[in-house]
């Protein structure tokens, strides 16, 4: 991130903040959607996080740490959205008929529903760790720094979350395996 832009926004430059918001808006929204699994909630969380960025920016001591700091504010906004309502309604998406194979050859259609169900059973704490690590490719120590929690807690949460997702995938695989055996 352009630290000069951050510094100017810290000083109250609304134009600089507008440029910042445009630069980080997509990334924040992408993360919010993946944590909350709901378009409306993600938009609300992104909007609140950006407003909090503007409001609290003067308190950011090191402009070079802007990215991690902004993700922390976003995750907090996701917590708030998650607490505000429990409307975890699934986002229905019409899939093209010829979209069974993912980018790396994985049959995502077969797994999508299981993952969606398994992911929704996770708390926001666990989802945030999965998304920061597996979507943003953040190393675990950076996830810990971003969320302000010990690295051991991050590892524990990631392990728990991946175990839950694996159980969700395996749960649906079992009946098919039994049928195949018969």
């Amino acid at each position: 991130m352009d630290t000069d832009l951050v510094t100017r926004a810290q000083g109250g430059d609304e134009g600089a903040f507008a440029s910042l918001a445009v630069a980080i808006g997509d990334r924040l929204h992408g993360v919010a959607f993946r944590i909350l699994r709901d378009t409306d909630l993600a938009e609300d969380a992104t909007q609140q996080a950006l407003l909090n960025v503007w409001q609290d920016l003067p308190q950011l001591r090191d402009p070079a740490r802007f990215d991690a700091w902004s993700y922390r504010l976003l995750v907090r906004a996701c917590y708030a959205e998650g607490r505000k309502t429990r409307r975890w309604t699934p986002n229905l998406r019409l899939l093209p008929a010829d979209e069974p194979i993912g980018a790396d050859g994985i049959d995502l259609v077969a797994h999508r529903d299981q993952l969606e169900r398994g992911f929704r059973r996770l708390s926001i704490d666990h989802r945030a760790v999965v998304v920061l690590h597996h979507y943003l490719d953040m190393p675990l120590d950076q996830v810990a720094e971003t969320l302000g929690i010990p690295a051991g807690t991050v590892r524990s949460r990631l392990h728990h979350a991946m175990r839950g997702l694996r159980a969700a995938l395996d749960a649906d695989a079992r009946p098919a395996a039994k049928e195949a055996a018969q």
Binding site: A21, G30, L51, L108, R166
Partner: peptide
């Protein structure tokens, strides 16, 4: 396998913030 599947699944979905969100903030 699980990691690969989860990573592919996370790539799906929106990556663009709607203009109305940015407009509301600004």
């Amino acid at each position: 396998d699980v990691t690969r599947i989860v990573r592919s699944w996370l790539e799906e979905g929106t990556t663009v913030v709607p203009d109305r969100v940015l407009d509301a903030v600004l």
